[in-house]
């Protein structure tokens, strides 16, 4: 393999039902920095049916070029079709770095493509850099349940690929009118030769608790005691437009489903704001939330270990402070919205 032939930073631009998914734009932000360092183009890869028009958005978020394959056979994500399409593009255009969002389909695709083109893939990264001297991509990720960070290198194979967790990288501010080059390619697969078929896609904001992608999480621990306490937490979450999380004990008490559980045996979350209410801070819980941007802990025990990972802490009785917080926040929000939007209610 001649490593010199491989140039450029690529980002897989995931779309769902014809709409761009945030993580692709976040990766354009991260990819832009890498491409500038390496002095190469930043390119998007956009697949789907009737998706060509989405390309212009990617330019506004930093892409120089977008490879588009627009074909009805790509309407829904299927590993067999997407893997073939992306594999062909990689073989033809030879990028040196290729980033994918660590979403269900992004991880699925990246794993299949890595085997298809026989290269290395670093999973679930949260930190990206390049060593310019060696022109080597340094992708770092939490491992062993978040107990350690590891930098993974791929020295002798190209492209150097990584999946990147959603909500970790930052989108650039869009530059309206920024343009780039669209490169259209085609795919030669016939429906009758395929082995899989998507029968139905069901997306409902309510049915599935999606902690992994939540920006704000209000989490209940055993300190909330019972159903009434849990309601109180839900009310705060409601006002904040947050997703409700829980410790395992709360799930085991039957106050909510397992899909709300944060931690080692639940979801690993990285919201911008995590509020832990009546949670002691057991390591199994902490590994699932310690990378949140801002952590607020409420506990009546000043020695609770949750305060070690929190940014702000209050020692208080949850039953006193949570309803108060809900009220105060409602008020503050109302003031802000009124000040800015001339009285339009928050939705």
């Amino acid at each position: 393999m001649n490593l010199e032939e491989y140039r450029g930073v690529w980002v897989f631009i995931e779309q769902r039902e014809g709409k761009l998914v945030d993580v692709g734009l976040e990766l354009l932000g991260a990819g832009r920095a890498l491409a500038d360092k390496l002095e190469v183009d930043l390119c998007g890869v956009l697949l789907g049916s009737n998706v060509k028009d989405l390309a212009k958005d990617t330019f506004e978020y930093g892409a120089d070029k977008v490879y588009v394959i627009d074909d009805p056979i790509l309407e829904q994500y299927r590993t067999e079709t997407y893997m073939k399409a992306v594999g062909d593009l990689v073989r033809k255009y030879k990028p040196e770095i290729f980033l994918y969002g660590a979403t269900a389909n992004g991880k699925d695709l990246a794993s299949a493509v890595a085997t298809e083109v026989m290269t290395g893939l670093t999973a679930d990264t949260t930190l990206l850099d390049v060593n310019l001297e060696k022109r080597l991509f340094e992708a770092s990720r939490p491992a062993f349940g978040g107990n350690i960070m590891a930098t993974i290198l791929c020295k002798k194979h190209r492209p150097q690929m990584a999946t990147v967790r959603p909500k970790v990288m930052k989108k650039l501010d869009p530059q309206p009118g920024r343009v780039g080059e669209v490169i259209e390619e085609s795919i030669s697969l016939k429906e009758e030769n395929l082995k899989t078929k998507v029968i139905e896609i069901v997306r409902s904001a309510k049915a599935a608790v999606n902690l992994e992608e939540a920006e704000i999480i209000v989490s209940a621990g055993k300190g909330i005691k019972d159903e009434k306490g849990f309601k109180m937490v839900e009310q705060l979450a409601d006002v904040l437009n947050a997703t409700v999380g829980a410790s395992r004990d709360v799930v085991e008490m039957g106050l909510c489903g397992h899909d709300h559980q944060v931690g080692q045996t639940g979801a690993t979350v990285t919201p911008k704001l995590y509020i832990a209410i009546g949670i002691s801070g057991a390591v199994q819980h902490v590994v699932g939330m310690q990378n949140s941007e801002m952590i607020i802990a409420i506990n009546n025990d000043p020695d609770a270990t949750i305060f070690n990972v929190a940014h702000f802490g209050v020692v208080a009785d949850a039953f006193e402070i949570v309803p108060l917080l809900t009220e105060e926040f409602k008020k503050a929000l109302k003031n802000e919205v009124e000040a800015e939007e001339g009285g339009v209610a928050h939705v």
Binding site: R16, V21, Q76, R78, T103, A104, N105, T196, K197, V198, I199, E200, I201, V202, R203, S204, A205, A207, A208, N210, E213
Partner: peptide, 8 residues
């Protein structure tokens, strides 16, 4: 999948 499921 995110926010739901698919039948394949």
């Amino acid at each position: 999948i995110e926010k739901g499921y698919e039948i394949i």
